[in-house]
Nucleic acid binder design. Sequence first.
DNA 1: GTTAGCACTCGAAACAAAAGAGTGCTAACA
DNA 2: TGTTAGCACTCTTTTGTTTCGAGTGCTAAC
Lengths: 352, 352
Amino acid sequence: MDLIERKYRILQAIIDDYILTALPVGSRTISKKYEQNLSSATIRNEMSDLEELGYLDSPHTSAGRVPSNKAYRLYVDRMIHPAPLTPEELSYIQSCFDTRAQQVGTLSAKLAKVISGMTNYTTAVMTRTPRAEQKIGHIQLVPVSDRRILAVLVTQSGAVKQQMLELDQSIAPDALYAVSRILSERLNGCPLSQLKKALLDIAENEGKGIRGMLREIAGIPDEAADDGTLVVGGRSNLLGFPEYSDVGKAQELLKVLETRDKMISLLSRQGEMEITVRIGPETGIEELRDCSVVTASYRLMDGRVNTVGLIGPTRMQYGRAVSVLEEVGKALGRAINRQEIGDDDGTPRTGR
Amino acid sequence: MDLIERKYRILQAIIDDYILTALPVGSRTISKKYEQNLSSATIRNEMSDLEELGYLDSPHTSAGRVPSNKAYRLYVDRMIHPAPLTPEELSYIQSCFDTRAQQVGTLSAKLAKVISGMTNYTTAVMTRTPRAEQKIGHIQLVPVSDRRILAVLVTQSGAVKQQMLELDQSIAPDALYAVSRILSERLNGCPLSQLKKALLDIAENEGKGIRGMLREIAGIPDEAADDGTLVVGGRSNLLGFPEYSDVGKAQELLKVLETRDKMISLLSRQGEMEITVRIGPETGIEELRDCSVVTASYRLMDGRVNTVGLIGPTRMQYGRAVSVLEEVGKALGRAINRQEIGDDDGTPRTGR
DNA sequence: GTTAGCACTCGAAACAAAAGAGTGCTAACA
DNA sequence: TGTTAGCACTCTTTTGTTTCGAGTGCTAAC
């Protein structure tokens, strides 16, 4: 039906305009800028219908209309326009993830910086290694001082965990090497989840001297459990939006960004390999009721999974956000392939 | 001279009051709340003098006075009152740094959280190991995948650097162990600054097979140069201060906090073992012209140095800030002693 | 179904007046 | 001579009022 089509066109125009200006959109604006062959009165009628359908809200009688969350949902699902990046932007992204020997632990920060830089929103990056997939590669005990050793645990996928241990008695470096070797041999391929048991097993059967130490090592996996690194970047961007010219609101939002639990829960919801958009209450976090969050996950060469969340007002440039996340995904994928280790191309697909 | 003494008392009262209320202080307020045996007229005269001396500014004729940076300087140097923490607060701090086996890398975040939580200011924590003091303890090469190895470098003080390396050819784990052992033996005690040369030396004299690898390893120290970890916490606190009810100012400040270089330079100025207060322009950072920064350094068991900076409006509760930093220092010191490794007690002394 | 026209609503901006906080100065006081 | 009461003056803040304009909803005509 043609009418329906037109309604949606008008709705889209309203959303587009509102995303651009943050100002309630009036019928005249639409009739002038978007639908020049329709009079403002006609638009008015349509808008009235759209309000009744729940797609528009009016702050007050004489203020034009504002898209509702329902409208944003529709917009994201059906009428988002892709915002292809310029060649310069593409090559910029490429160059960011190009370095051959990526410094360990810097990637999250770089992701946050690049993404929030390109979108003007705030970016949260969570890095973690799915526990189930982690299998022991090597265990290395490194003497640090008399009674302290550093246990370095390398998973088969290349992730590294380290934990400082204090021993009851001192132990000679050579003995440590020996133990390292035994452990690495015996535990190779052991899933991280069963490490503890395996260690205790060895402790039982093995000679007296190291038993105590093994017991202590057995405690590692729990403490070192990778509950994720969290990096947030681009907070100052938030304050640039008129919706946060109220300091109170800005503060509330900043506080959420500082609350690790909330951020982790926000990002944990993201499945792998798909870009997800959550609008207002869909975020599941009360304080984000007026925000939207676009998330994507990237699987890295070493088994880690980076989940990226873009946080901005519901009036977000969704097309742009999705494009940037997509291109970053592709760039990461290419970087992985170049290093010939990638187990998949790291490119997220778009979707709800 | 008694007169002088009184002037300073009045100045102190003004500063105290302003720190508390953030409102320009009038003569009546002082006469009522602080100097009940002096009339407001007298106070007025004194205030007029103080303004002439450069200790007070008046925003406009009928608005009371506001302390100048010069006044804060005097305040910090001469009339700061210590703000002893309550027993509960003390034991809270204690408990925060009590954990026996501190997770590697968590300390900065904890410091930032505890300190900004207790002061309501923003905290930046920089961790780094003074390059000059780092001497090689052990080098361990850990096989990760076919051509990738993880080089773990442990300094004598226990700091750990790691770097992923890609090799031109694959190498057997056993060979790696051998190389690790040789390197550890030969390089033990070698200052980090000379590591590169030492490695290249070995590469010259040593067998063909590993030469390439050694060359690559020689590249590590530069890349892995510990230019410091930076953690910032408690940003949302800033927005609670009336001086940042102007979103523009808040944004400017947040942006500085996001600029790694500026933060590093801000914190690098702090010498060891002393609490330093820098007021406004003294911070050396233009955007912080209306902020004060209180910094302290803590030397940790593993040789790392944590420099903590408290950032807030110049109208800062200096006494409180210094007290908290002092107590945190003491708590860290105790934690180090308990672990019987500390090379000093980590307690900063107070001073300009 | 579309549109012109118009009365009506309501916030934002502009303006004016009043209130209030604080100062500086003068003159009197101890 | 230092202190203080008193008062005129200044300047911001608050409050109220008016005006303006954007936008709507409805009706009637096309």
